[in-house]
């Protein structure tokens, strides 16, 4: 498959400079999922090649084949084996990256048409609010509590973790983690009306936590 190798090459090239690429993970959660993707891509490529080969061979002479090889052997057992393995891998990764009851840092993300209100706790326990910029500590898991003011939005920082919807009337929790200090791009992933495309935000990962924001701004 020339297409697939070209795909990988593009992906690697593209991965290095971008702020929103899931293929350039910057934390363990996103890294686990990216790893899952590369494995699935390899498997899918193999299966596609297999199908193409089977189709090409079909154009030879009529062959004396039994039907159970195809319907039971390939259709049932082959696919069940591959799928079970994949499902297990997915479950394992899913469980690893779940929020759980450790004492992760908790921050809040409140979505509205069209922007984000974030808050984290300062050293004295008071809530510090910030618009379109979320502060988190570096190197530790952070749980984000996600709510919405009006319609459904979705909180997504592709280099740190998967997305989680902000649904009015509910509070959702998701876990993100950044390996290095710096700024990461995020966006609203669920269509939310006129300014959906502009509903961007950033995540600032700080080495010192809680951050001294006045200092950081200078």
């Amino acid at each position: 498959m020339r297409g697939a190798s070209a795909f990988i090459a593009f992906a690697l090239l593209a991965g290095c400079d971008t702020g929103l690429s899931t293929l350039a993970p910057a934390g363990p959660v996103a890294a686990d999922i990216a790893w899952l993707w590369w494995v699935m891509l390899a498997g899918a490529t193999l299966i596609t090649v297999l199908m193409v080969v089977l189709l090409v061979v079909a154009f030879g002479r009529p062959k004396d084949t039994g039907s159970r090889v195809w319907t039971h052997g390939m259709g049932l057992w082959f696919s069940l084996t591959v799928l079970t393995a994949l499902l297990a891998a997915g479950l394992w990764v899913g469980e690893r990256i779940q929020p759980r009851d450790d004492d992760a840092v908790v921050v809040r993300a409140h979505a509205f048409q069209w922007g984000w209100e974030f808050s984290h706790e300062a050293a004295d326990g008071t809530a510090v609010e910030s618009n379109d910029l979320l502060h988190i500590p570096v190197g530790v898991p952070v749980d984000v509590l996600i709510t919405s003011e009006d319609v459904i939005h979705s909180f997504w920082v592709p280099r740190l973790a998967g997305k989680m919807d902000a649904i009015p009337g509910r509070t959702n929790r998701t876990r993100i983690q950044a390996d290095e200090a710096g700024e990461y791009d995020g966006l609203c992933a669920e269509f939310c009306g006129l300014n959906h495309a502009g509903m961007r935000f950033s995540v600032q990962a700080h080495a010192n936590w809680p951050p001294d924001l006045n200092e950081a701004e200078q």
Binding site: T22, T48, M51, G162, K163, F191
Partner: peptide
């Protein structure tokens, strides 16, 4: 065959929860 098989494979990928969290939408 060519197109649908590939679509089916990406469908299976999307059925895997953690990957779906990234690829959804």
């Amino acid at each position: 065959f060519l197109t649908f098989v590939m679509g089916g494979l990406t469908g299976v990928m999307l059925a895997i929860v953690p990957f779906n969290w990234q690829a959804h939408d």
